[in-house]
């Protein structure tokens, strides 16, 4: 293997952060604080995760693996929730949506034999699934919020005509699900042409034959489609009711 990233090379690579900071200061983007916080968090979190994973992989305990997956799902839900300000129970909804989308997708992968139930495969794959589901749900929440705001009059008119809450919201719900899924579909179309995504790049980096590496990338493409579609549909169908009160009026 030709893997040479050490602490010194990382320190030198940190110059790249200065590029982003420089642009933020020069263009007065006001992002400098966020960039610094983001970088510090990334470094600290990754170091902790690195040591934690090393331990979990060595112990190879079922419950510890499940606990780690649970932790990933909870964090993903927590982050998705933040994209849905004003949506009540956004945490519970996100948790359910990410749990189901991750669970179903992982289940299919394990049962089909694509991955083995060992921590070194289960945990990274769960992370990929949950994070994509999280992004999809976050986008869907944002879309719900903006559409219920922009199309308020249309929703009110549907209600005034005696539409049920789903009939009054269905166009918005569909658009939000579409918004949640579309980045995954777009990247599925360009995978290999524009980007060599993480899974495949990582394997190639580690010296695996590209023809084998792409099989894993194909699996990732499939699993992300399932995860984002399940995550978006569950989150949207549970969240749209939040825009109405008990008297079935638009809040």
């Amino acid at each position: 293997m030709n893997l040479a990233a050490n602490n010194t090379s990382l320190f030198l690579a940190a110059m790249l952060v200065l590029v982003a900071l420089g642009i933020s200061l020069w263009q007065k983007l006001g992002l400098d604080r966020d960039i610094v916080i983001g970088v510090v968090r990334a470094v600290v979190q990754l170091f902790i995760v690195g040591y934690l994973l090393k331990y979990i992989f060595r112990v190879n305990n079922l419950w510890l693996t499940l606990a780690m997956i649970g932790f990933i799902i909870f964090n993903a839900a927590w982050n998705a929730k933040k994209r849905g300000p004003g949506i009540d129970h956004a945490l519970a909804i996100s948790l359910l949506a990410i749990f189901v989308s991750t669970g179903v997708t992982l289940g299919v992968l394990v049962l089909s034999g694509a991955i083995k139930f060992v921590p070194s495969q289960m945990i990274p794959i769960s992370g990929m699934i949950a994070s994509n589901s999280m992004v999809a749900i976050g986008l869907a929440y944002r879309s719900l919020n903006s559409q219920f705001h922009d199309q308020r009059q249309g929703v009110l008119e549907r209600l005034a005509l005696g539409a049920g809450l789903l009939d009054a919201s269905i166009a918005i719900v569909r658009e939000a699900i579409r918004t949640g899924m579309s980045p995954t579909i777009d990247s599925a179309k360009t995978v290999g042409l524009v980007s060599l995504p993480g899974m495949m790049s990582g394997l190639i980096f580690a010296g695996v034959d590209p023809v084998r590496a792409i099989r894993y990338q194909i699996m990732v493409t499939f699993m992300l489609l399932s995860a984002t579609s399940l995550g978006s549909i569950i989150a949207c169908y549970l969240a749209y009711r939040n825009f109405y009160n008990e008297q079935k009026q638009l809040k």
Binding site: Q153, G154, L156, E157, R158, L159, A160, L161, G162, A163, G164, L165, A171, Q247, K248, Q249
Partner: peptide, 20 residues
């Protein structure tokens, strides 16, 4: 009344309505 069923009997038409 269920608000949905009620609104089918008491129908409100907006000023400057939006068409779908």
């Amino acid at each position: 009344y269920d608000p949905i069923m009620y609104r089918r009997q008491v129908s409100y038409c907006f000023q400057q309505p939006t068409l779908f």
